[in-house]
């Protein structure tokens, strides 16, 4: 038995070392695979984000084109038609004139919705105010816009448009489903961050429904507009969307959006009149 002592004393640590080496190798291998998997998921997420952005940008371009066509094409034709209606020697037709006026107003409304001119000219606060004011309040609905004083600074057009669309989507969802008496849209500006808070006192909803909605996929089948559209737009900005709602207890949606301020225009040198 003693003659076996040395081989035994050598064999056991050797076996143990082999086991430890095997386990160490497996752990390192698995860790590197986990890291690769995470990196791949990140690449996929980035690609998905880029595809979403491209889809939304294309959508906005198309809206702009249609708005232009409506304004320059249909709008001009309608204006000409009205001129012909009141041309000298023609029999006045007030009903036809009224219908043309209605058509012009409708074209303007569609055009404004497609491409909010206020947003480009006056900025986000004014555009959102115009959006809120355009909501009919004849059924006792109170819609308010609250924002920090003074009005927000200007952001780059793509970001302003995206925030505007998010607000539009929130209001549209609220008006369509909430059955609320009071709706409030609040804007909070922080450096590089804009928080849009939508609150209503409507019927609320079960948050578990949100979990069942599929993730936004630009190339996948269309799965609805409302919340998924909202989620996609927030995702494009790389923001966060938080819901607080209970059935019967109203809804609060908080969109935290990273935004880029518009670089101030270079100050042109001014000279005294006498110079």
């Amino acid at each position: 038995m003693d003659s076996m002592l040395l081989p035994v004393l050598l064999a056991t640590p050797t076996l143990l070392l082999l086991v430890l080496a095997l386990v160490g190798f497996l752990m390192r291998y698995q860790t590197s695979r986990l890291r690769q998997q995470r990196e791949l998921a990140q690449v996929l997420e980035t690609a998905q984000q880029q595809a979403l952005t491209a889809a939304l940008v294309a959508q906005e371009d198309e809206r702009q084109r249609i708005a232009g066509e409506l304004h320059d094409g249909v709008g001009t034709i309608l204006a000409l038609a009205k001129l012909h209606l009141y041309a000298p020697g023609t029999v006045p037709a007030p009903e036809a004139s009224h219908l043309i006026d209605q058509a012009v107003a409708e074209v303007r409304r569609i055009s404004r919705n497609l491409q909010p001119a206020t947003l480009q000219q006056l900025g986000l606060t004014q555009a959102l105010r115009a959006l809120v004011q355009a909501i009919p309040t004849d059924q006792g609905l109170d819609v308010r816009l609250e924002h920090d004083q003074p009005p927000l600074e200007r952001y780059i057009p793509a970001h302003e448009l995206m925030v505007y669309r998010i607000a539009q989507e929130l209001l549209a969802n609220g008006l369509r489903h909430a059955q609320a008496r009071h709706i409030c849209l609040r804007l909070k500006a922080e450096p590089r961050l804009l928080t849009l808070i939508y609150t209503d006192d409507g019927q609320g909803f079960n948050l578990a429904i949100l979990e069942e909605l599929p993730a936004p996929a630009p190339l996948g089948p269309p799965v609805g507009m409302g919340l998924i559209n909202l989620r996609s737009r927030v995702a494009v900005l790389g923001g966060q969307l938080r819901y607080h709602s209970t059935p019967g207890g109203g809804t609060q949606v908080e969109a935290i959006l990273p935004v880029t301020r518009l670089a101030p225009a270079p100050v042109s040198p001014s000279y005294p009149l006498a110079s």
Partner: peptide, 16 residues
């Protein structure tokens, strides 16, 4: 891992 360490640490003694 426990199983492997136990087996590696005991198999030589157990086979004597």
């Amino acid at each position: 891992v426990g199983q492997l360490i136990y087996s590696a640490g005991t198999v030589v003694f157990f086979s004597l």
